[in-house]
């Protein structure tokens, strides 16, 4: 087993771990998306895990990729996702707030009427 082989193995393991973490993060975020009580908390869960999951998986795949071109492409995808996802999440929350949707701050209070529906 040469050093190269070991490095390669390490690369594979690293990649697998990374994408595994990414997948797990995404899954957790999705549970949050379903279970959390109001839009803003859901947006929080989704927004954070979306980016985190994407980073995990895309970086993991980039580590695993067989050639440079694929890795570069993956990084580009990552950049796009890194920009697009938070930006749209931000714009969405802003639009929601401007449209009159308010976060429900106390759990004992019934959720407010939902405008925009």
């Amino acid at each position: 087993m040469t050093l190269l082989d070991i490095l390669d193995l390490a690369r594979l393991v690293l990649g697998d771990i990374l994408i595994g973490i990414g997948g797990l993060t995404a899954l957790i975020g999705a549970f949050g998306l379903v279970r959390l009580p109001d839009f803003y908390t859901r947006a929080h869960a989704a927004g954070v895990t979306d980016t985190a999951g994407a980073i995990g998986i895309l970086v993991g795949l980039a580590v695993l990729s067989p050639d440079l071109l694929t890795a570069v492409k993956l990084i580009v995808v990552l950049i796009v996702a890194l920009f697009a996802s938070p930006a749209s999440c931000h714009a969405l929350a802003r639009a929601a707030f401007r449209s009159g949707l308010r976060p429900s701050l106390h759990e004992d209070r019934p959720p407010p009427a939902v405008p925009g529906e």
Partner: peptide
């Protein structure tokens, strides 16, 4: 229930499909 929830899901689904 609100439209914004749906847009949010759309966004998440989009990202997840990419991945």
């Amino acid at each position: 229930p609100s439209v914004f929830d749906r847009v949010l899901s759309l966004n998440v689904i989009g990202t997840k499909t990419i991945l």
